[in-house]
Design a protein around this nucleic acid. Structure first.
Length: 259
DNA sequence: ATGGTCGTTGCACGA
């Protein structure tokens, strides 16, 4: 079994004790982290090496930052876009091959508001991700694209769809951009296993939203067709959202049956 | 109706 997880930790520096505790409990083989908010030189490699992980980090310092931790190999690491276009001004995508899976760890731009430049950046970013998938050398490879997509795929993933009208994370262009990734051959593993709404991965720190069950499901594990039938279980670990100094996101864990 | 809470080489801004 290969246990893969993704978790937006909202600052790895602030969250390191929680991440260590969680790693010891859950023991994923591969962990993708978003919003490390660290420079590469500040990444706590030793903390993870002690637990048997090889790590790759793509950071910029204050904001963003993505990492992949793996106990099952970490090969062909690529940070940022692998195309002829301009470098991304923000550290939001990292690739590595782990245990026979080509893994992309993504932190999709938030978008802020529908009229913001950042929203256009979000749409452009997602389209560029689709084009990157189109250029993968061997389309038969097992592929996982996981992370914080900042898009709720459908209204089941939103606690109050009416209240979100006109906001980011639920707009049709974003959902279409996500659907273009799925068109390539990726499937939202959680949705493949559960039809129910009301299961979320992010809750605003304010207003007691977590306690009140007001969240969004925006943290996704997308798996290629070859890998999808190997997913034995998928879980949003909402326990990790409880207690002292939690991230505002919960990890998503998938167990894949591998050879 | 409004604001609320986290994080950051913080004292405003992003989420």
């Amino acid at each position: 079994m290969l246990r893969l997880a993704t978790w937006n930790v909202n600052s790895l520096k602030a969250r390191l004790p929680r991440v260590e505790e969680w790693l010891d409990e859950v023991q994923p083989d591969v962990l993708c982290l978003q919003e490390t908010k660290l420079a590469d030189t500040a990444f706590p490699h030793l903390t993870f090496q002690e637990r048997g992980y090889e790590c790759a980090h793509h950071g910029e310092g204050r904001w963003n930052g993505v990492a992949i931790l793996s106990k099952v190999g970490l090969a062909d690491v690529r940070a940022g876009w692998d195309d002829e276009g301009e470098a991304d001004p923000e550290a939001r995508i990292l690739w590595a091959t782990c245990g026979g899976i080509r893994v992309a760890c993504v932190y999709v731009p938030n978008g802020r508001s529908l009229d913001a430049d950042h929203y256009q950046y979000k749409l452009t970013w997602l389209a560029r991700l689709r084009r990157t998938l189109d250029t993968l050398e061997d389309p038969s490879t097992h592929v996982v694209v996981c992370g914080d997509f900042n898009v709720a795929p459908d209204d089941r993933d939103v606690h109050d769809p009416a209240a979100f009208a006109g906001e980011t994370h639920v707009s049709e262009p974003e959902r279409e951009a996500l659907a273009r990734l799925e068109d390539w051959g990726l499937t939202d593993v959680f949705r493949e296993h559960y039809d129910a709404g009301g299961l979320y991965s992010w809750w605003d720190y304010r207003r007691g939203d977590f306690h009140q069950g007001r969240g969004l499901r925006i943290d996704l594990v997308l798996a290629s067709a070859s890998l999808l039938p190997r997913a034995r279980s998928v879980l949003i670990d909402r326990n990790a959202r409880k207690g002292k100094q939690p991230s505002d996101h919960a990890p998503v864990i998938v167990d894949f049956e591998m050879e």
